[in-house]
């Protein structure tokens, strides 16, 4: 259940951004979660709503979670894309010489304030 701690971190950041922009209400927070980030979007949304309820300016804020699929960048053929399964293999040329381009991130993308 580390989602509770993550939700608290997201709320802290949203609150700070709201204050920095002299606003008093956060409407929506957009978060991107890589499919290898080991975060459950539903758990995160649940924790976010529970913690937001006690915070002025944040209660009722909506959390949008986008899951970013695993993508690899091939060092041999230059292709970037999603492997056929959860593995580090180039979907075009089959090379194992790849780096993970996305799918591990856990990011606050943006928020909407009023």
């Amino acid at each position: 259940m580390h989602e509770l701690g993550l939700a608290a971190a997201i709320l802290d950041r949203a609150e700070a951004a709201m204050r920095a922009h002299s606003r008093d209400r956060v409407r929506r927070v957009e978060v991107a979660v890589g499919e290898l980030a080991t975060v459950l979007p539903d758990n995160l949304a649940f924790c976010f709503a529970a913690l937001a309820a006690d915070r002025p300016g944040l209660s009722g804020a909506h959390l949008d979670v986008t899951v970013r699929p695993l993508a690899v960048r091939c060092m041999d053929c230059g292709h970037e894309g999603r492997p056929e399964r959860i593995e580090t293999r180039c979907p075009r040329c089959g090379s194992r010489h790849v780096t993970i381009a996305s799918g591990q991130e856990l990011e606050i993308v943006a928020l909407e304030v009023e």
């Binding site: 950041r13 922009h21 606050i108």
Partner: peptide, 13 residues
């Protein structure tokens, strides 16, 4: 409504 772009890690702290 104003949109604030952050694009930063949740675990930045």
């Amino acid at each position: 409504t104003e949109r604030i772009e952050l694009a930063e890690p949740v675990l930045r702290a």
